[in-house]
Design a protein around this nucleic acid. Structure first.
Lengths: 378, 378
DNA sequence: AGACCATAATCTAAGCCTTGAAAAAAGTCA
DNA sequence: TGACTTTTTTCAAGGCTTAGATTATGGTCT
């Protein structure tokens, strides 16, 4: 709890921490004493006080531990190593021909990448807290971390089991949209909110729902699938098989298709940019539909903030944010709704690995820290 | 925490409680000792154990305290008094001509009702824990409990303030759909679930979202407005002003309207029953639309259970539950989804007051209990 | 019946966490 | 330097929880 306050509240003095956590100064003092002697936190200068003893500023020691984040994407597997402050120290990169998403190959890439980044960054291996992996599709909770990813043709791939065979580091596997959402929540536009929704528009559409400061996962850990919120009963067929899904209208692929543009996945970005430049009517329509979808989310979740991210989301939102806000407000009349609730993501589209690395920190904040190699899966 | 386990886990022995709460038998023993001497819990018989000392069964003392629940409805204000086990002990009832919903009149009815039920049930007044009020519309949190209810023409009625002027009992004001949802959650079809959605279809449509065993209220306490989830972008105009809302298709009023039936609010039930008997195509269409809406909810919340309640919901679901499940499943393909997730409410349409009374118990479980007359508003 | 066994509940002393109050530390200012 | 201010630490006390021992209450076996 103290660690949390210090990590998210930035460097702070013992007094600040006492105010932030509600603990007494005495307790903060003894606890920070322990943390200092364990080297989890370090001193970082002083601040003069008016007339009294100067306050010592404390912060989390970025070098106390390290986290590996993995982004398993459509065309590549990228593995990154971060310190506790999430400064990127090393990166490994493996192209995957989009036809072949052999689970074992992906697992080998990940394992090789983990070794590479640890070696390259010259970080002591025993200081690595764990490996977080962001994958497309739904991850079934459990020690095997079964992954279902339509786009990869993965039906029930036990990625957790595959990886555990090759490393003794704690493992955390989660949906890529969720890891990216967590990144926005901790370090991006969602920072400081307790009730937020992060909508990620890329080729498809994913999302993260934050309730009470935490990602909401629901009973089967599959909540937050904003892409399959229905916009039009009986509408366009989605790749999930159902009809009228948001993704079937507002994924980049769908927008292009609706605009009559043929583009393979490498060209999608340029093609979407062109539609925007042209001021195609499909864009206005998309804004309107996005407003409808967001208004549903507002009524259901009443969030403090809605973050639009993902490359397509940033592209669309970058030019049409005002219109998106207006369209949402027009469909949200029952309650006082501030359009400023809707903002753009700040981390860019490559935050999946960053977010995946943050998964590793959860047990660290619980006070776990290096309790041997207990592999757990989110 | 112990009280919670005992209340929801039914009568239990100290050993059961130890297992349920994770506390040691010693702790349970000392704490139940306190609770017994305070008369909050009482002994309720014994169970033989195979070969050892028999276990003493404990339960919450229903007569330890009482709660008043108020249902402010379209045509009447009803005030009910319950003991801790939520057995109804008394009821007072005031007709309100639907034209006039003068806030002060409603407040006077409520206050009179509270006095009446306490007198009638001959319960000691100092044993009444508080008054919960369920109202239509959105309640703004705060000491005044500002109520916005379109159907009543209430813009910002400070119901909490009005009532506080007439009673010193702790007050809790909340949306009627939420109180009813809480009733289903605690005592009805939602019992035992931690992630559930309760959809209440009456003349309009309301809802309650349960996350981690608690009603989710969102940043502005207005979450869970299932009625304004959009089903059809650009569709029928809702009374909220927006278009394509679920309520504009699936409220009883809307279903009848779509079926070309003219009925005033008193006849709605009979009229809807007639449509069902006739096998009107509007019904099949409604089932399909409900399936679309529920599938959106499944994707967003991934609930353990969906409860359909409210008089119209019970009527429709009573005959078409299988079809509703099928329609939902047809729109929910991305993840393993069990149609049995969807069930009917068990408490009937009159549970608003019951649910409102449960609002009073929250502080009781926090260990508050008769700490003077600290009026708080949910 | 009496020895013995099994299970439930309680008692006791110890450990841990937190805190208020007092003391110590580290400055400023006159 | 000494008075004063503010931050930090120390210390003893209080509260909560628990492991382990003890007591309570019954059954079973010879």
């Amino acid at each position: 709890m103290l660690l949390r306050a210090l990590y998210f509240g930035g460097p702070a003095t013992r007094n600040d921490l006492s105010a932030a956590t509600g603990l007494s100064p005495a307790t903060v003092s003894t606890m920070t004493g322990d943390l200092l002697s364990e080297n989890v936190v370090v001193e970082a200068g002083q601040v003069d006080s008016d007339g009294g003893r100067p306050r010592v500023v404390l912060r989390v020691n970025p070098a106390y531990g390290y986290a590996v984040g993995v982004d398993v994407g459509e065309t590549q597997v990228s593995v990154e190593l971060f310190d506790l402050e999430m400064t990127k120290l090393a990166r490994a990169h493996y192209a995957v021909r989009s036809a072949r998403h052999d689970p074992e190959l992906v697992a080998r890439h990940i394992l090789a990448g983990v070794d590479t980044v640890i070696a390259e960054s010259e970080v002591p291996a025993e200081r690595v807290l764990g490996v977080g992996v962001g994958v497309p599709g739904i991850v079934e909770p459990g020690p095997d971390a079964l992954v279902r990813a339509k786009t990869f043709g993965w039906e029930a791939v036990p990625l957790g089991a595959l990886l555990r065979a090759g490393t003794s580091l704690p493992l955390f596997v989660d949906n890529g949209a969720k890891t990216m959402g967590q990144a926005e929540l901790w370090f991006g536009s969602g920072k400081g909110t307790r009730d937020a929704i992060i909508v990620l528009m890329g080729s498809g559409v994913g999302g993260t729902v934050v309730t009470d400061g935490q990602i909401y996962r629901g009973a089967g850990k599959a909540a937050g699938e904003v892409g399959h919120l229905k916009l039009v009963a009986g509408g366009r067929t989605c790749r999930c098989g159902a009809r009228g899904c948001l993704e079937a209208y507002l994924g980049a692929e769908a927008i292009l298709d609706r605009g009559g543009v043929v583009a393979d996945s490498a060209d999608e970005e340029a093609a979407l940019a062109r539609l925007l430049d042209e001021g195609s009517p499909v864009i206005a329509e998309s804004v309107e539909l996005l407003g409808v979808g967001l208004s549903s989310l507002v009524h259901l979740f009443n969030p403090e903030r809605i973050v639009i991210g993902g490359w397509a989301g940033l592209m669309l939102g970058g030019r049409m944010l005002t219109e998106i806000r207006a369209a949402t407000a027009a469909n949200t009349q029952a309650q006082p709704f501030q359009p400023e609730t809707i903002v753009l993501g700040r981390l860019g589209p490559d935050a999946v690995a960053l977010g995946a690395a943050t998964l590793v920190l959860e047990p660290f904040f619980q006070g776990a820290a290096f309790q041997g190699a207990v592999s757990t899966i989110a």
